[in-house]
Amino acid sequence: MGTENPATAKQIHTAPSAALTALKGYWKSVRDLAQVIFASPTAVIGLTLVILWVLIAVFAPLITTHTPFEQDYKLVNKGPSALHLFGTDDLGRDVWARVAYGARTILLLGPLSVLVAFACGVALGLPAGYYQGWVDEVVMRILDAFMAFPAILLYMIIISAVGASSFNVVIAIAIGGTPGIARLVRALTMDIRTREYVAAAKLCGEPDIIIMLREILPNCRGPLIVDFLLRIGYAAFYIGTLGFLGLGLPPPTPDWGGMVQEGHSHMTTNVWPVLCATLAIVTLVIGLNMFADGLREETMRYQ
């Protein structure tokens, strides 16, 4: 007990340098990623648009003069003024405030719904691609059945059945996105499972679940990250569409699609709510798509 264990001492001695190495590793990854992004003008423009909306969402209370819910019935459907930067909607609410707070809604629900869809897609696609055989057949046929429905119709069926709410919109988009993600993960898994390092892991006796999660999944990350970004764009678009169809977030939640829906019947007299909400959806979706496209181009070049 009196003598110090040399191994422990060595561990203590080497711990700071291991952390430093890890930090350096992360920093290198970030630098590599930045290099990839900045190599593509498309990705830079896309990222700028996305960051702009993220900043608007984060600082919404600071950059607006009204809350998105305040109604002024004496100032209904008015154009831009000193008091209301982009005018007011049909309930006398500040259009800019609703757009800014609407960014929070869409930037929260979009990634969240895609994350849920990814969790489900990976859970189904990995074993299907890894085991193949009957597991693959069963999983894929079920997912094919889902894919037979046009996405928007599937969302409408789900929302009509369970009602419109933030949670249900996330679930609907997750269910709609799962089959596509599962197919992608399955295809990547079928490729990667034939690599030597997977065979080596098998030889070492690692259980299948570990092989799938440690060896295969991390090596799928390139295409998956690109797909993730693209899907956030689609999700933003679908959240807007559901809002426009009256199946989105229940009012008075600031929701860009809902703004278009509410404002479009007054378009001939006041175009501002529809114009602002539409531009917001367009810029965010284009931003996400450009970012993803730029990333894809660059990563493919490296491959």
Binding site: S160, G163, A164, G246, L247, P250, P251, P252
Partner: peptide, 10 residues
Amino acid sequence: INLKTMPASQ
């Protein structure tokens, strides 16, 4: 008051 919206037909 929580609003539950639906199409008029529903």
